[in-house]
Each structure stands twice: as structure tokens, then as C-alpha cells.
């Protein structure tokens, strides 16, 4: 096999993410039909598959420089043809954020769901406006868009925690045995640390590469942790004695 291709895919994060996807696929296949059709299970699976897809695609762009250069040129970036930021901007900071917001929205009570709908709508509009106006081009770092996305995710997680301490449906349960609780906690930590990591990365790599790499590795660990929690969510119906049933707001 081509050694360059092997090298591009041999990063521990890429290998870990691919292994997690295999686990996720196995658990998802084992789910009963009605669970597979339930958004509680297919949305985490979609996020897992999408994340692993774009991470692998990112690795491929590092291997195929000509492809990366062509896409950058198409987007109007001839200055930094080695960047593949356009991929991570679209996948992680825009589509990824919307998918996580939808996941958070699923766990919220109906009143808060309305806020989440508006938040998602506002986020989409802002992303389009910031990119079309040229404030944050698609091929460069997009700190404003990521900051907005990370803050919306923090607000969404906050709404979940407010529901957790006020709603009767949650007060009757042990949060430490709810997958939604661990999802919210991991998503909140991952997006906050990813945000710090992304805005300081270029600077740190120039000034203190060791610290930059450490911060980047921390982000990778958090991302793997989030993917692992998504797998736990998918697998939770197969281990009913380990987790409590999630509260439902549909009946109340």
C-alpha cells in the first residue's frame, strides 16, 4: 500500500475514530427496528458516521495535495493551498454544530425546543451572512462562527441542566445513569475546549509547538470521548439494567 496514504491515516485520533465507528455500526445493527427509526438512536449514529467520514476525508486531503489545492483554488484561496480548513469549517463548525444542536434539542422540554429552533435558524443565517460578506471566508480559520456555535451549544446544554433540576420527569431519576446527562456534559466540555484550542492553535504552533500539540491532543481526546458517549447512547437499549429510561416530555 502507498506509504503516504498509510501515513495520512495512521494518526491515533483517526484510528480511534474509525474503531469507534465500527463499534457504533455493530451496536446500531443490533438495535431493534423500532429503535433504529427513533431519533434518540439514529441521530447519534448519524453524528458518529458523519464525524468519522469528515475526519477520514481530512486525512485524505492531507495525502492528496493536488485535490486540496484544487478545492482551495475553487474557493478563491491560492495563498494557502496546503490548508484543508474549508472541510473542517463546513463539517465540524457548521454542519456538526447544527447536528449537535438538534441532538440537544431532542432532550429538551417542549418550551425550550422552540428556543432551540430559533437558535439553529439564527446560526444558519449568521453563518451564511458572515461567509457571503467575506468577514470569515470558508477557506480560513472561522473563530466568530465557531464562537457563536460553541456558545449556542453551551446555552443548549444549560437549558438541559435547568430542565434536569426543575422537571418532575428528571427529579424521579438518577442523572448519573442517564445517557443524556453524559452526552450534554461531554458535548459542553468538548466544544469549549475545542474552541480554545482552535483560536490559539496557529499562535501556539508558532510560539510553543509543544503546548499547541498538547492542547490539540486534549481536543482529540474530548472528541473521542464525545463519540464514545454517542456509541453508549446507541448501545443503551442493549444494556437496560445499566441505564435508566430517559424522561419523556411527549406524554406530560
Amino acid at each position: 500500500m502507498n506509504s503516504g496514504l498509510l501515513q495520512a491515516f495512521s494518526h491515533w485520533f483517526t484510528i480511534g475514530a474509525n474503531l469507534l465507528l465500527i463499534l457504533g455500526v455493530i451496536f446500531f445493527i443490533k438495535l431493534p427496528k423500532e429503535k433504529k427509526a427513533n431519533i434518540q438512536y439514529w441521530l447519534p449514529f448519524l453524528i458518529l458516521a458523519f464525524t468519522v467520514f469528515y475526519e477520514n476525508f481530512g486525512s485524505y486531503t492531507n495525502y492528496n495535495y493536488e485535490f486540496k489545492k484544487a478545492v482551495n483554488a475553487y474557493l478563491g484561496n491560492t495563498e494557502y493551498p496546503q490548508f484543508n480548513l474549508w472541510l473542517f469549517n463546513i463539517a465540524r463548525r457548521q454542519v456538526g454544530v447544527i447536528l449537535y444542536l438538534l441532538l440537544i434539542r431532542y432532550w429538551l422540554q417542549p418550551a425550550y425546543k422552540k428556543y432551540m429552533n430559533w437558535m439553529i435558524l439564527v446560526f444558519i443565517v449568521l453563518v451564511v451572512v458572515l461567509q457571503i460578506s467575506g468577514v470569515e471566508p470558508l477557506y480560513l480559520n472561522q473563530p466568530i462562527i465557531f464562537a457563536i456555535g460553541a456558545n449556542l451549544i453551551l446555552i443548549g446544554s444549560g437549558l438541559y441542566f435547568i430542565g434536569m433540576i426543575t422537571r418532575d420527569q428528571y427529579l424521579g431519576r438518577n442523572p448519573l445513569r442517564l445517557v443524556s446527562f453524559w452526552q450534554m456534559t461531554l458535548i459542553m466540555f468538548t466544544f469549549s475546549l475545542n474552541y480554545i484550542s482552535s483560536v490559539t492553535l496557529l499562535y501556539l504552533y508558532a510560539v510553543n509547538p509543544v503546548l499547541g500539540k498538547a492542547l490539540q491532543d486534549l481536543s482529540y481526546v474530548m472528541m473521542l470521548g464525545t463519540l464514545a458517549v454517542l456509541i453508549v447512547t446507541i448501545a443503551s437499549p442493549l444494556f437496560p439494567d445499566k441505564f435508566e429510561k430517559e424522561p419523556s416530555f411527549e406524554i406530560s
Binding site: 456534559t185 469549549s192 475546549l193 480554545i196 503546548l211 492542547l215
Partner: peptide, 24 residues
């Protein structure tokens, strides 16, 4: 600046940990 970054990261991590523990 590096110390500020390290401190900010630790502070944010600590803040969120405290928040989650307080919620529980």
C-alpha cells in the same frame, strides 16, 4: 500569553466541572 492560554483553559475546564457537579 502562553500562561494566559493555560490559565484560561484550566479555568474554563474547572468552571464547567463545577457547574456540572453543582447541577448534580
Amino acid at each position: 500569553q502562553i500562561y494566559v492560554i493555560i490559565f484560561s483553559t484550566l479555568f474554563l475546564g474547572g468552571l464547567m466541572s463545577t457547574f456540572v457537579v453543582a447541577m448534580v
